[in-house]
Computed example of a mutant assay.
Amino acid sequence: MTTQMQVSKCLFPVAGLGTRFLPATKEIPKEMLPLIDKPIIHYGVEEAVRSGCKDIVFVTGRGKRAIEDYFDRSWELEQLLEARDKFDLRDMVRDISHMARFSYVRQCEPLGLGHAVLCGEQVCEGEPFGVILPDDVMLGTPPVLGQLISVHRTFGGSVLALQEVTPEDTSRYGIVDADPVGEGVYRIRNMVEKPPLSQAPSRLAIMGRYVLSPGIFRELHDLNPGAGGEYQLTDAIRALLDKESVWGFVYRGKRLDCGTKAGWLRATTIMAMEDPETRQIVLSALEEGGNVR
């Protein structure tokens, strides 16, 4: 077994405009849309912290101040709750700012996921780091990012979260060409972006969790922009394959895609149905809705 550096930092690209949720996201970051009783971004941060990450790095843009405020102290709210003897609520909102050490860097132009990761270089350079795409809420025990970190500790290199998708869905994701090396672990040989089924090397799709070696920054610096002038992270990882090992791991857990209105509504319904109290609310609403003429 190879001894690897501790993964203590996790980067969150959150500079996107969230146009799929307009007009709700005209003033509210899509990452702050509620999923039951917490904003979407909160679930990703919880996952990173449970995976052992102590430093959370947000790559933000204009209009994302609400994310910074959410993970900061709210003295006025805490004092108000304390004055009303609501100490449990006071402690709950206070604990949010104590989850980890938070830092923020700006992505001044929307130039793709690869560019967003490159914006975090000064904070993450020199050691492996996690990347969580908060649109994907991952529910797993141990947490999904922690599962990737365990693979990194054993094999080194970079690790990508994989999920087997249906044949008709290969054209929606980056698909890997990979060889199995252990239970759920694959050595990646190549990646194909959104191939039709006839050209897909497998049905193993890359999902929104990564552990990346610091070598990724070298590849991002050398990367040429692709369609729309964007710098794609998958292109940089593909270039990294020639120099370092890149592994894939079929994670254990549930993925809730909150990147579209349909996905967010489905995720909200699934989570509501898993709690006995909110489950009854959903069932009653469906019954009531069925009686509307």
Rank of each mutant, 00 (worst) to 15 (best):
S245M: 08
M138D: 07
R172L: 12
Q79I: 08
H98Q: 13
R172Q: 12
L35C: 07
E244V: 00
R189M: 13
E183D: 13
F21C: 11
E288Q: 14
E274Q: 14
F12S: 05
P134K: 02
Y210V: 10
K254Y: 03
E109R: 11
D136R: 00
P180D: 07
T60Q: 01
G18Y: 02
Q147N: 05
Y186E: 09
Y104H: 08
L113Y: 10
K194D: 12
R50V: 02
D136Q: 04
L89D: 08
V93K: 00
T141G: 03
R20M: 00
D37K: 10
R90P: 00
S171K: 15
R187N: 00
Y43G: 06
F21Y: 09
R252A: 11
V45C: 05
A161T: 05
P214Q: 07
V159E: 11
R172K: 15
G229A: 03
G114V: 05
G184I: 04
G253K: 03
S74F: 05
C10V: 15
R209N: 15
L220K: 10
A100K: 06
L148K: 09
G130D: 01
T2C: 14
V250T: 12
D55I: 10
G156N: 02
M273I: 04
G253Q: 02
L204W: 08
V131M: 11
G263N: 04
P214A: 09
